[in-house]
Simulated assay, not measured.
Amino acid sequence: MLFESADPDYFLAHWDLADDGSLLADHPPQVEGQAPFSDLVIRLSKLPVLTVSAIRGRVRGAGSEFVLATDIRFASRERAVLGQFEITAGVIPGGGAVARLPRLVGRARALEIMAGGEDFDGALAERYGYVNRAVPDAEFDAFIDAFVTRVSGFSVSAIRELKGEVNPQTLPKDDELAAQSDLFFAALATPEVQEWAKQAFENGLQQVGPFEEDLAEHSAKYAPKR
């Protein structure tokens, strides 16, 4: 299963920071005790097929957590931008990055990614293990097509069995995501973070333009000191 974006500048932006979670409060959880987004990424990570993210453009926050829940991440070397910027807003990532990144890149690099809140280009993301591979953009489409075509020709049951054996060794426990989601939404409701959001929205958050293009840099200007 391949995930890609038709927008050359954004693969998947981030959580709608105007939303405090109330719009989905009545959404019935499919995994007992999980918030809707946590439920989505948990089920995504456990699908009995191979999932591949082909990342061109920006993928931050919950967008990054979405691709972290897929099995394989390939990035355009020149055009991919990944990051967990939440610390600049005074919150921790709430959709799985805290649980998944240390397993992928190690403790120190995971803390650098999340505590630093900076953007990673495709080359550095590959070096850290944030993505599997960074591919020159001119070769990106052909590379993705070749990989997906190759894998799709293999035994469906063997892929399912392979994931069934790998998952218990590598996936976080479901309740890890529940705790992180609770911390995210609790912090989002504090006056300090609400003030950050007010200033950020006034200066271009979630609008086409420089603020979203260089989100890590601009967001940090209004970072709350909770």
Score class of each variant (00 low, 15 high):
A189E: 12
F85T: 08
W15R: 14
L111W: 06
K198I: 09
R109N: 10
N167E: 06
K225D: 04
R226I: 02
V135M: 14
V81M: 14
L17Y: 15
R43T: 01
F66R: 01
L2C: 03
E118M: 11
L111F: 07
Y10N: 06
Q194H: 06
A186I: 00
T70G: 10
S181R: 03
F143P: 00
G122S: 13
Y130T: 14
K163Q: 12
G209P: 06
D16P: 02
V135N: 10
A189H: 12
L24K: 04
M114E: 04
A125T: 09
N132D: 13
H218S: 02
E192C: 04
E65W: 05
A25V: 09
E212W: 07
F85H: 08
E213L: 11
Y10E: 08
N132W: 10
K173W: 03
L183K: 04
L215Y: 11
L2S: 04
R133N: 02
P102C: 04
A142S: 13
L2V: 07
F120D: 07
L17P: 05
V52I: 15
G33N: 11
H14N: 13
I144W: 13
S38Y: 04
L111I: 10
K173Y: 05
G164I: 09
L111G: 12
F147T: 01
A6W: 05
N203W: 14
T51N: 02
F37A: 15
L205N: 08
S157Q: 09
A25L: 08
E212T: 13
A189W: 02
E139Y: 02
L82P: 01
L68K: 01
I72C: 02
E161Q: 14
F74T: 06
L215C: 06
L162M: 10
L17K: 11
S45K: 00
V166K: 09
R160L: 00
R58L: 12
A110H: 02
Q169H: 14
V148Q: 03
D121R: 08
V52G: 01
G96D: 06
K46D: 13
L23F: 07
G95H: 15
S5I: 03
S45H: 00
M114N: 04
I159F: 03
V98H: 01
L177P: 00
F184N: 08
R226Q: 05
D119T: 04
E176N: 01
F143N: 04
Q180R: 00
N203S: 09
